[in-house]
Amino acid sequence: MGFLQKLINKARVKSPYVFHFNSGSCNGCDIEILAALMPRLDLERFGVKLVGSPRHADIMLITGPVTEQIRPRLQRIYEQMAEPKFVVAVGSCACSGGVFRGGYNVLGGVDQAIPVTAYIPGCPPKPTAITFGAYKLLEVLSKAFGVAEKKEKEEVPFDITAAQSEGVAET
């Protein structure tokens, strides 16, 4: 991997542009995505920026069970995105169809129409869960691109009982 490519990959992980697409969702997931970008959680501190055009985006967040009318448009928009592109299915509907499984006009999950990189379940997932999912995706991407930062020390799994006995975590 050349130096320039490495730089580009590093920049890519540091500031992913996301595009939000609604494929027939109930709006619950959409407001939670927006809430994740709003002052309280501020997803922008990871460099994430919401853009309005698929051509600018690296990551597409999709909500909803994919209705029949939306499917061709979803596929066309997916093709419009520049490589490398990643798709995140947000919400139970986008993961598997959710409550709309069995409806005559839904496909049941984004992965029935286009390939999906990550799934964030929940109906709707909390903004914290969306932040966590986005963070995890970035971690995986930086490993895949070979630009992961070297860990200085081994990560210790968070021990809830120890934390509780010290009074750090709430019971």
Partner: peptide
């Protein structure tokens, strides 16, 4: 009576070959 199996279609599991 759902002649084209539309209501079964969405009851799939796992990603489809795209």
């Amino acid at each position: 009576q759902d002649p084209r199996g539309l209501m079964k279609r969405s009851q799939t599991t796992g990603p489809k070959e795209v």
